[in-house]
Design a protein around this nucleic acid. Structure first.
Lengths: 161, 161
DNA sequence: CCTAACTGTTAGGCTACCTAACTATGAACG
DNA sequence: CGTTCATAGTTAGGTAGCCTAACAGTTAGG
């Protein structure tokens, strides 16, 4: 419509639509998280520990576990919030806190067996619910969604930096 | 891989990926909402009032405003939570509560001029931030995202029912 | 050493949500 | 009509998750 700034106006429109979609998706997330097992925050943390746990990034030695500060950064929260969640997970027997041998200030957090199992169970259940929702879509819709997921992943990755 | 239930396993995989994407997108939403103006919940409510306000659904007469129960349903929260937010908006001068002339039990909520302006401002700002994020994508990525938005909208619509 | 930088915990506070209990109005029916 | 049941919203009390500020212990540098 506007010849002077077509790109910008399209970008803003896309931004608005995407925002709207995410805003509404909060219901969906809320419904998924309402299975009364693990809270969203706790599952996120457990999952992160699982992903990062086995082979921690670029570390030379096999320093098992993730440091509190790193957890906070990964989850996009402040350190005290991470501590709070970690303590809850620890009390629930899902995670363990151990001193870092190479730096006595630091704390290493690892999943327990129970934690690992809890992640698996919770994820399965939520995936099943989500799959139920997606099952009502057409094949084309699912294809479009699948094509967009890497893009959304790229958007999210941008924010980590 | 598995010939017996290829559709189901694909569906579950898609479900998992979509869930993951939404989970990570929470950062993005949080960042957008951290502009220190209106909280996410309040902006959602204001926006809903704006959308529903002018021409309320299938109502015969021009009953202006939205009822508290309807607001709660639209936002996916319980009535007391809606009341709470409405009171905050009212105190901030962004919304008004009036008795429903046709049912003295009911309350009609409408935006004030200030509320309308606040929605506009907050949305503009957040759209700009989001546009900034999206500007780093390739054209193909943006196209894929745009194609998926209606699908996500359809998913969200499913939940309303 | 002694100070400066860093890691994590504690303390206190806020928002947004929930359930349960209450008030007031409307509607149905004998 | 008047009692009874349903509906609309508010109030009260509680929880989860996040934040900032203040604190304690550890490491590293001058």
């Amino acid at each position: 419509m506007n010849a002077s700034e077509p790109a910008d106006s399209g970008l803003l429109a896309l931004a608005q639509d995407f925002r709207e979609a995410l805003r509404h998706s909060i219901y969906l997330v809320r419904r998924l998280d309402a299975d009364g097992e693990l809270s969203a925050a706790q599952l996120s943390m457990l999952k992160m520990l699982m992903d990062a746990g086995p082979a921690a990034g670029g570390g030379a030695s096999s320093a098992s576990g993730v440091r509190v500060g790193e957890i906070a950064r990964n989850l996009g929260v402040k350190v005290p919030s991470a501590t709070e969640q970690i303590i809850k997970l620890e009390r629930a027997g899902l995670a363990r806190r151990e001193p870092d041998p190479s730096d006595s200030r630091a704390v290493r957090v690892t999943l327990t067996e129970a934690g690992l199992a809890a992640v698996a169970t919770a994820n399965e259940r939520r995936n099943a619910v989500m799959a139920g929702v997606l099952s009502s879509l057409s094949d084309d819709d699912r294809a479009a969604l699948a094509a967009a997921l890497p893009v959304i992943g790229r958007i999210n990755a941008t924010l980590q930096a």
